[in-house]
Amino acid sequence: MKPSRLNVEPQLAHPDDFYQALLELHQGLTDEESRLANAKLILLLANHIGDQAVLDEALRIAREGLGEGSASAVERSGSAVPSVIWAAPLRRVTKERT
């Protein structure tokens, strides 16, 4: 196994408080709104982390035990981007414009 760069040691000082706050985020939301709240949360945290290697590791672990063939298929493709294009390498395009 490669040395993990994602910190998976216990970090939260008050885990129960955090867990409660996480659930409260979703209180009174429809399923669709909850999905949006989760997505926003992930995007905010991902940007805060800002390290692609750490994020890749987290993406890999998040996929473990889920879906057909579980983690190994994702590991091979190197990322969890859904639309894998034939022969197009999944490299990062650094100079992008919006």
Binding site: E32, L36, A37, A39, K40, I42, L43, L44
Partner: peptide
């Protein structure tokens, strides 16, 4: 969901 969340943010 990720698309819409991105746009909201």
């Amino acid at each position: 969901a990720f698309r819409d969340a991105t746009l909201m943010l």
